[in-house]
């Protein structure tokens, strides 16, 4: 993975928030994931296969998903099932959109959603993983990208 790869994911993430909420999200400086856990309350994980192999996940808190779901559905209240579904859809959209850069040999899986704070999300040890901090409103989320 190189800087260009990271930019594809950063652009895809920023575009997602802007298109869906009309509000800008900002990203922090990406860093290499070490042993420290990067996991919040809800995580959407996508497996990557084809030309590139690895996985991508986005992890965030219920409060952020709650705000985002309310905007998307234009409702005052949303349910737990909606926010659980939404984290999977965000992961799917951010990962799917980078195909514009990588081409259709970049295959993505359906999302797997982990809810509740687990110890960490396991990524392949053999591949370096990068973490991109994301700020939208006052909420912090993280996008982890692990690609061969």
């Amino acid at each position: 993975m190189n800087e260009t790869d990271l930019h594809f994911f950063i652009d895809s993430t920023v575009n997602y928030f802007e298109e869906v909420t009309n509000e800008k999200a900002t990203t922090g400086i990406p860093y290499i994931k070490g042993d420290e856990p990067v996991v919040l309350e809800y995580t959407g994980i996508i497996g990557i296969s084809g030309k590139r192999k690895g996985s991508v996940y986005i992890t965030t808190n219920a409060a952020m998903l709650n705000d985002l779901a309310k905007i998307i559905l234009n409702l005052e209240e949303v349910g737990v099932e909606d926010i659980r579904d939404l984290i999977g859809e965000i992961a799917n959209t951010i990962s799917g959109n980078v195909r514009q850069a990588y081409g259709s040999d970049f295959m993505i899986s359906v999302p797997v959603v982990v809810d509740g704070k687990t110890k960490d999300i396991r990524l392949p040890d053999s591949i370096q993983s990068f973490v991109i901090p994301i700020m939208w409103r006052n909420y912090k989320s993280f996008l982890a990208v692990c690609l061969e």
Binding site: N15, Y16, E19, V20, N92, T93, I94, S95, G96, N97, R99, Q100, G103, S104, I108
Partner: peptide, 27 residues
């Protein structure tokens, strides 16, 4: 209506009979 918004996927879908192709996220 898909997150796989690359041109090749769009063309493939149209070739298979889709009448319209919209990328996610959409407004």
């Amino acid at each position: 209506i898909t997150a796989l918004s690359d041109k090749a996927t769009g063309l493939k879908a149209m070739k298979k009979g889709a009448k319209s192709f919209l990328g996610k996220p959409f407004t």
